[in-house]
Design a protein around this nucleic acid. Structure first.
Lengths: 144, 144
DNA sequence: TTAATAAAAGATAAATTCATCTTTTATTAA
DNA sequence: TTAATAAAAGATGAATTTATCTTTTATTAA
C-alpha cells in the first residue's frame, strides 16, 4: 500500500508525536530503535519531513526531532503520505493507465474511486493528536 | 496499489477475456500492443498466469492465449492479484509491522481493516464476465 | 575557543522490481 | 519430415527503491 519510506516515516512521526506531550526531543538513534527501522535510512526520511515542516529538528547536543504539541491536531496522516509517497495512491489508475478518469474510465475506474476515497478520508481524518493520546498502548504496539 | 506486473496482468487478462466470446486465441504480440505494455515482460506474466490456470495457452501456429468462455464468471480479479502480487494487499499492516493483528493492533490497524476489506470484496466480486460484457467500451478504453 | 553531540548533506552500495534478449519446445500446414 | 509459428524457459540487463557510510554544519557546555 505504502512504500517502505512511507511506512517508516509514519511510524517515526507517530513515535515523535507521542513524545510531544513531554516536550522532549528525540534523537534518530532512539527513534529507529523504538520503531525498529534502519537508522540511516530513517534519518533521510526525517530530513525530508523536516524540510516539509511536518516535524522540526535542532542540531547539536540536546538536539533532536520534535513536534510542537499545539500542532498535533493539525497534522493528518495524509500530510505525511503526501510528502513521502506523493498522491499516487489517491489519483493513480488501478490498472496503471495514464488517461483514466471519469470521462475516459478504465473498466474498473468507478470501483477504484470508491476504495480510494475511503482511504483518502481515513488518512485526512486521522491526526497525530488522536494517535498520540493513548500513549501507553500505541507506544507498546509500535514496536512489534 | 498494485505492482506493474499486476497492472499489466490485469489488463492482459481483461483483454483476453474480451476475446473469449468469439473463441479466438490471441498472441502475445496482439495483447501487448492492445494494452500498451512491454511485450517480453507481459509474456512472462502470462506464463505465470497460465501455470496458475487463470488463462490457457497453446503453442505453435494458430496458438495463443485464451480463456474458456464458461469460466469467465468463475475468475475474479482477486484470483489474478493473488497470483501476481500475493495477498500482501489484504493482510499486510499499513505501517509495515510484522506482528500487527486484532490482538496486537498497530495504532491504525482497525482503520486499515475497513479499507482493505472493501478492496478485497471489490476484487472478489468483480469477475471477468462482467468486465468482458461491455466489450466495445472496455476495449476502447483499455488502450488509453 | 575547544571538544562533544546530533542533524544535514552527499556519495555509494545492495536489493528488488521492471524489462529485454536468446534458446528451447510444442504445434501446424505444406 | 520440414519450415514456420508461437509460447516456455533461461540468462542477463536497466531502473528504482531501499539502505549504508562519510563528511559537513550547527549547537552546546565546559
Amino acid at each position: 500500500m505504502f512504500s517502505k519510506t512511507c511506512e517508516y516515516g509514519l511510524r517515526a512521526v507517530i513515535f515523535i508525536a507521542q513524545q510531544a506531550k513531554t516536550n522532549e526531543k528525540v534523537g534518530i538513534n532512539t527513534i529507529s530503535e523504538a520503531i525498529d527501522s534502519p537508522q540511516a535510512f530513517t534519518a533521510k526520511i526525517l530530513q525530508q519531513l523536516t524540510k516539509n515542516k511536518i516535524i522540526e529538528s535542532i542540531k547539536g547536543p540536546y538536539g533532536g526531532f520534535f513536534i510542537d504539541e499545539k500542532r498535533l491536531n493539525k497534522i493528518a496522516l495524509s500530510n505525511i503520505v503526501q510528502v513521502l509517497d506523493g498522491d499516487s495512491i489517491y489519483t493513480g489508475c488501478g490498472l496503471g493507465l495514464h488517461q483514466c478518469n471519469d470521462k475516459k474510465p478504465c473498466p474498473l475506474h468507478f470501483k477504484f474511486i470508491e476504495i480510494r476515497e475511503n482511504l483518502k478520508k481515513m488518512l485526512e481524518n486521522t491526526t497525530l493528536l488522536e494517535l498520540s493520546s493513548d500513549k501507553a498502548l500505541a507506544d507498546y504496539y509500535l514496536k512489534n
